[in-house]
Simulated scan of single mutants.
Amino acid sequence: MARTTDIIIIKSIDQLPSVDEIKSISRERALKLVFKGNINKQRERIGQYLEHALSGFQVLIHTIDPELNIVKLITDREIEDNQYFFEQCAKDYRKLGEQLVLMLVDKLDLNLNKDFPLDTFNELKRDHQQIGTVGEWRYFAHGFHCGFQHLTTKQCIEVPLTFGLEFGDLDPYFFMKFILSSPDYNPLPIPLFDEYADGLRIINKMTTLGKFEKIPSNLPGHSGVVVTEREKVEIKSNLDLEKIFGKHIEEIEKKSKFNLWKFLGLKK
């Protein structure tokens, strides 16, 4: 969804809207403060003050242009009122992600590493198969995810590969892209504008409400968030994986300084 932008020219400090005035704007409107003359020298300091004073808002301090951009993010009340919608979206994300991964594994006749799917998908990168189509979807294996986009509807989903057979981890940006691109959710019950910032607030609040919960990852120092009401699967820790892989590669590591994580496409 697109916002309407209100532009205010700021030539002196007294032309700045008050914090209360800014708080009164709706989420459907964006505020752009354009600084002219000497007042621009104070722009960064003013932006930092507004960041502190405006809880629930996003204040962007432009690094080149003399402007501040301010928007109101989705509120806790709006998330609470639509919690069952966001919960269903998370369930749909998880279900579709699993279906697409298994469909791709079947098409390419891959030997899926159920403890660490990233290992299997890294093979696609080495075999130059990281981009292609499966059914009505285009896929792209990259980083810690495999992205899919429907060829007709353009629905998109990024499926995580570092949580064992748990494919429902919710990244704020990817979760919002999924919701906004899914035809079945239109019209949305609540306007969504900022794909990362709104997504982060939704995930944090849904976790507080108990609808989402944190889960461990295969990777050291990494965790995720998934819908609470689900059929739970075991997720091996990085130490468990070291033991599993170590049985087969311990001697190779000694002789050639082989590094498991580098082999899997990760740095360690």
Rank of each mutant, 00 (worst) to 15 (best):
D65E: 11
I203G: 05
G47R: 00
F193C: 08
F85C: 04
D20L: 14
H62M: 09
H145V: 13
V233T: 14
I215D: 07
E250D: 15
L16F: 12
F121I: 01
E123Q: 09
F85G: 06
I179V: 05
L102Q: 12
F121H: 08
L241F: 09
E213V: 03
R94K: 06
N69H: 14
C146R: 00
V19N: 08
G199P: 10
K95C: 01
H248T: 12
G143M: 07
R77C: 06
F116N: 07
D92F: 04
R29G: 02
L151A: 11
W137F: 12
M1K: 10
P66G: 08
L96C: 08
L161I: 09
S12G: 05
K214Y: 03
Y139D: 03
N122D: 02
M206Y: 07
E229H: 12
R45D: 15
T120H: 05
W137S: 00
T152H: 04
T153H: 05
L100V: 07
H222T: 14
H222M: 12
I7P: 03
R45Y: 11
G37E: 13
Q83F: 06
E51Y: 05
T4R: 12
T207P: 01
F178W: 06
G224W: 00
F144P: 07
I64R: 08
L73E: 09
A2M: 15
G56R: 13
L161W: 10
K114Y: 09
E242Y: 02
L200I: 06
D127G: 05
C146M: 08
I25K: 10
D92Q: 05
W137I: 07
P191H: 04
V134W: 01
G164N: 01
I10L: 12
I215N: 01
L60D: 03
M206S: 13
L200P: 03
F174H: 05
E158C: 06
F148M: 05
Q149H: 08
H145K: 12
P189W: 11
G135L: 08
Q15E: 15
G164M: 04
N82V: 04
L33K: 01
I70C: 04
F174A: 07
K114G: 06
L102W: 07
N238Q: 03
A2R: 15
I157A: 00
